[in-house]
């Protein structure tokens, strides 16, 4: 008996030491873990391996602008982006990532194909499209498309918003409007200033299903 269990523990240890290839590592603190490995072994748990997260608690990263991903990961790492979910989930994940790993992760997710998580609330979509394409001139809200692109595809540090989960979009619009927890979003703070809850829900419903390129 003693021998069996000792053998077992030793075998485990040997397998553990021998097979721990960096190819399938879940270590967040070793610069040698390839970005692709991190994406598959760690990020995929919440954001999905192709960046099309299932749960709206987790933003979709597929086809996201690489510059934007880099900026956000660095923002989490240096605690500049401090909205509650960012702090609860992403500060720890990003704390020891190297700049190179961040670049690799951004390239990985940017290269994935984004798919819609499903149609938005049909009662809201038309109003949302209107806000996105034309803004709300009466309230001084510019069209979202001016910065986020005609198809919501984003550009550089202007994030892709097309096909994003509507629950996540509403949450972020609220963060911009009511807090200073995303200081890189000063533009968004001004834009969301006079958006009503209804406006936010509408534009979010549209983004989730919008025809996109």
């Amino acid at each position: 008996m003693k021998r069996i269990s000792l053998t077992l523990v030793l075998t485990l240890a040997v397998i553990g030491a021998g097979c721990s290839s960096m190819e399938r590592s879940r270590s967040l603190a070793s610069p040698s873990t390839p970005a692709k490995t991190l994406a598959a072994q760690v990020c995929s748990n919440c954001h999905s391996i192709d960046g099309n997260s299932v749960s709206p608690n987790f933003p979709k990263l597929a086809e996201q602008q690489p510059d934007y991903i880099v900026a956000q990961l660095k923002g989490f790492r240096n605690h500049r982006r401090a909205d509650p979910e960012g702090f609860e989930y992403m500060w720890g994940i990003s704390r020891s990532l190297t700049d190179d790993q961040i670049k690799g992760l951004a390239a990985y997710f940017a290269a994935q194909k984004s798919v819609s998580p499903g149609p938005g609330d049909p009662k809201l979509v038309a109003e949302g499209k209107n806000i996105f394409d034309k803004g709300l001139p009466a309230k001084g809200v510019p069209p979202c498309s001016t910065c986020h692109g005609d198809h919501g595809q984003g550009n550089g540090e202007f994030p892709r918003v097309a096909y994003q989960h509507s629950d996540y979009v509403i949450k972020q619009l609220t963060v911009f409007q009511r807090t200073n927890e995303r200081p890189d979003g000063v533009a968004m703070k001004a834009i969301t200033h006079s958006l009503s809850d209804q406006n936010m829900a509408a534009v979010a419903a549209y983004l989730q299903q919008m025809p996109s390129k």
């Binding site: 967040l28 702090f87 609860e88 989930y89 500060w91 720890g92 994940i93 704390r95």
Partner: peptide, 19 residues
């Protein structure tokens, strides 16, 4: 204020308990 000083697993991932 930070997520670091939490029970062992939270320290390991740096995440909050809700994760």
């Amino acid at each position: 204020r930070e997520a670091q000083a939490l029970p062992a697993f939270a320290r390991q991932t740096g995440q909050n308990c809700v994760a």
